[in-house]
Amino acid sequence: MRVLVGIDLRGGTELLQRLNRLVPLQGGELVLAHVIDNGARGEMDLARARLVHRPIPRHHLRQVDEAEREAAREALEEAARVAQRLGAAAETVVAEGEPGRVLAILAARRACQLAVVAARSGGEGEVGPHSIGHTARFLLDHSPCPVLLLRRSAPPPPGPPRPGR
């Protein structure tokens, strides 16, 4: 089975270990994808354009680009090492754009049978209306294949119903 796994800058290795507990990855084929969210670039342009009409100096844009690529490469290398330890064949992909949209496109292009992402980057393990992030929600709506959302820790079971008055 070919599985697409969305790898964040942090928490990718933990995500794979949790996935392995649910779906043993031994012998599986993984597409580990990190999407550089270019929304942040937009924010920087926003900050600039709001004040004066001058572009961000080119060498700073180069530094930003290098930092994004380097961080993505590190995160994917860590994840690939874990995947290898778990016995899966892993391919790594760095893409750029809105993460949910790009992951949905990747799932279709690579003919994946399952897409796996963290329910929310940071603040996971909680339940409630904010427990699913933008990326996971977009993927749920648009993925061409089944989607598995993983929380950092299993939510506590719901308590017994409160007695009504």
Binding site: A40, M44, A47, R48, L51, V52, R54, I56, P57, H60, L61, Q63, V64, E66, A67
Partner: peptide, 9 residues
Amino acid sequence: LILTPVVYT
């Protein structure tokens, strides 16, 4: 203009 991309990096 300048600190923002530096901090982002």
